[in-house]
Write a protein that binds this DNA or RNA. Sequence first.
DNA 1: CCGGTTTCTGTTAGCGTTAACATCACGAGA
DNA 2: TCTCGTGATGTTAACGCTAACAGAAACCGG
Lengths: 341, 341
Amino acid sequence: MGPNVDRRPPVMADVARLAGVSHQTVSRVLNDHPNVRAETRTRVLRAIDQLGYRRNLVARALVTKHSRTLGVVSFDTTLYGPASTVYGIEQAARDAGYFVSIVSLRTIDRAGVNDAIGYLAEQGVDGIVVVAPQRSAARALDDLPAGMPAVAVEGWHQGEVSVVSVDQVEGARLATSHLLELGHETVWHVSGPADWLEAEGRIEGWRAVLTAAGRPIPGMLTGDWSPRSGYHAGKELAAMAGDVTAVFVANDQMALGLLRAFTEEGVKVPEQISIVGFDDIPESEFFSPPLTTIRQDFGAVGRRSIDVLLRQIESGEALPHERLVVPPQFVLRGSTAVAAR
Amino acid sequence: MGPNVDRRPPVMADVARLAGVSHQTVSRVLNDHPNVRAETRTRVLRAIDQLGYRRNLVARALVTKHSRTLGVVSFDTTLYGPASTVYGIEQAARDAGYFVSIVSLRTIDRAGVNDAIGYLAEQGVDGIVVVAPQRSAARALDDLPAGMPAVAVEGWHQGEVSVVSVDQVEGARLATSHLLELGHETVWHVSGPADWLEAEGRIEGWRAVLTAAGRPIPGMLTGDWSPRSGYHAGKELAAMAGDVTAVFVANDQMALGLLRAFTEEGVKVPEQISIVGFDDIPESEFFSPPLTTIRQDFGAVGRRSIDVLLRQIESGEALPHERLVVPPQFVLRGSTAVAAR
DNA sequence: CCGGTTTCTGTTAGCGTTAACATCACGAGA
DNA sequence: TCTCGTGATGTTAACGCTAACAGAAACCGG
């Protein structure tokens, strides 16, 4: 056994000794500094390889003040929307050479979001992405640590931070207009829960189109995004018999619940009632009937938000706050049809 | 303006100065050391509060060699299974006072997993959870950095690391037995992609039950977990008319595809063909018909894996490798029925 | 009222890296 | 030959924290 059988991982000094240079030269090689002789460089690289040396990013972060880690605060990453958004964020961050530290909140409220942001700040993240689809969460952005670069996703634009989101209002317009164009007298709406900004945007777009067309605005049903709540809404709507001929549902999962309720009640989709969903989850295409819906490009949202955030971080300045909007896309399938005569 | 208007966040020394103590005393207060006079403690806490001081965990990690951060390597966290598992892991980790750094792989292969593990090791994580549902990924665990605590989720037990997983074989047994008990002559299987350990376990359980019952083992169809692949499998099965009366599908999404294909082909479920899925995604209950399936408790898997990992980390020793198995649960709904006479 | 404990608090020395500056060798130009 | 500039390398000092030890005050029994 040689003298160096200890388990302690090698450090820069060990590499330097083996390569016969100073630790600073090793640092220079690692950071691609120009003024290193080619022969020295290869000698250092060989030593690194031989020892299996990995640089200690914690020590590096201490001196550079940059951890190359981004914090992400999100809510229930089990849901398709948040999960996809976070995935997009993570991919974009890693492509840019950043790590991602995630805090996934069980319940979302100002205090919880604040705690999460605090933890991440202590941990030394270079910037924070808050997936803040609810008013209460969005408000927590007001008391970010001073000078911490941040961006809100699916949030509320109040001028405090930049916001990247899918244009919910436009998506709802697309859905509602489509149904009106098919000749339906009016369009019912099953909305998401009250506090959610996305739910609000979808209600707004739906109302706007009906108002502009001079159509009556039917009473609105409210769900909680779950298939079950859609199912209950569907039962109610089915009971209203011929009154209802078109429904815009705030997400695909609830739309599935409606479909199930209608099947049970013998209401034919799209013959008797047309349905449009929102999200375009991978399952929608295989519902019975396949669901006409509005696609959100979560990947694009993630990428754009990282763009904005990195620009802030790398400029080192407090850049003017932006509002980036990703357009939604209408997807025609089989759950909508021309209104019955 | 006082002398201290700079943007630089306060450090321990600033707190110490304001409280009239040494920085070490501040450290002691922060770390709940016993030997601090109560009066001193409150004075320090007041100073911390006044300055809005937050400790720098990077500096702390450098000296303690513990970052209180766990690394998670996963594959496509957009899918319900991985997303739920990662969510469970994150919750359990945070409850234990750890952060979670996530690397979400687009494609899973040994090199990719190795890179991810390498990055995380550089970053100074205290331990690593690898969600390794594929053979190729599981193999990457063989070359973990020496001494790095690790646990595999849904992986392969080779003695190199501890593994936590749902008992796939048992789940498949439950599904297949249920169908036989309903009087079906045999059970067809639409499996997941070849390289996946979960797919293999489900095939094994399915085969075992048929063999034990002395039933013929029909040719197996293979999908890729997507609803679309299930749809194609469904078309094939529908073409085989009366031969097929019962199908065990390796996940709920593919089962949805089958349902759709059968609807298109006029095959009635469960009257003509019974179907059992796997996973119990939130949508399954609202398929038409509601899907009989096998529930996996992803939350439990996440919690158990963090338990195992933290035990390793906190003991500081290389503990014997364990194999923890979480039992699956049979969920009876409407997609299965007694075999037609 | 003194030595020896028990609190409490302060001082010093790192952790492994990068930044800033110092040094050295070498060749070009005077 | 002597300087001077330039590229390559080494030396030193942080970064903000905790560990280890040192010292000062209070407390105890004999």
